[in-house]
Design a protein around this nucleic acid. Structure first.
Lengths: 142, 142
DNA sequence: CCCCAAGAGTTGATACGTCAACTCTAGCTT
DNA sequence: AAGCTAGAGTTGACGTATCAACTCTTGGGG
């Protein structure tokens, strides 16, 4: 790696970190939740199993389980008690969770638009899109 | 935010996460250190104060202090005992730390080149470079 | 029918980042 | 010189991510 390569890489990663930090703080400030919690809220649109949610998010089951435990304590999600027939029915949002999902989507979307999308030129957007798609395809074709 | 905007954003962030995860694992596998530790190793080329290192990295002092405590336990860095004259002399790499810094730079650089740089078209690279520079300038002009 | 193997989910240990509170020192004020 | 304040550094608490170990259920052989 040449010094220019390192400089390019450092700047890129620095921009990335600054952006994520700004968005995280916005979400925390406006809605009182973390980005991970936001992801759960918008993904859990219907009752699911833990494994299903983990797959949808591309996360590890353990991470989902820990996060659900914390969200459950705050009344955002619920684990349904094992059904009488012995079937596990899974997890779902509470009414409070659904309400938050709605308002957080609005607030977070506005932040993203303002901090990122509005500042992108069409060429930048298409280059980033193509790079992202290629990388996802290469690393995680599923 | 339109559904296309959300899809664009989700793909971008997903690519970012996959990339960082891959590089982190490579660094851990090849050198036994985290990305944060790598940053300290390459930045701490001479004895410094904690605050100076924190500024250079753009991190908070507390984070640096915690990380130094962990790295010290593993023999990578040392806090110099307060000098006789009452001057604080700060922190530095051990010989082991210097050795690791050298080899990790090589290994990590090769991973970055292979996973990222070699896969970028010139247009993608220049779009990403310009976006990164603009964002860093906007958010953290220092 | 019993046992066991596989999968789902949870838990605990450890590492990490952030925030706020704390300690210590040095330089300044009076 | 005594006290105060500002800045540096550390620590503790908490939320979070990852890994491995564990439990529980279930479904399939014997």
């Amino acid at each position: 790696m040449s010094p220019e390569d390192w400089a390019f890489w450092d700047t890129w990663m620095r921009a990335q970190r600054l952006l994520l930090r700004e968005l995280d703080r916005g979400l925390q400030r406006d809605c009182g939740i973390s980005k991970a919690e936001f992801s759960v809220l918008v993904t859990l649109r219907r009752p699911m199993r833990v494994g299903e949610l983990a797959d949808a998010l591309g996360w590890d089951k353990s991470r989902v389980s820990h996060l659900l435990t914390r969200m459950e304590k705050r009344g955002l999600t619920a684990r349904s008690e094992d059904g009488a027939g012995g079937r596990r029915t899974g997890i779902e949002l509470t009414a409070e969770g659904r309400r938050l999902a709605e308002s957080a989507t609005r607030a977070h979307g506005a932040n993203i638009r303002r901090s990122v999308l509005d500042a992108l030129t069409p060429e930048q957007a298409s280059a980033i899109r193509s790079w992202s798609e290629e990388l996802v395809e290469r690393v995680d074709p599923a």
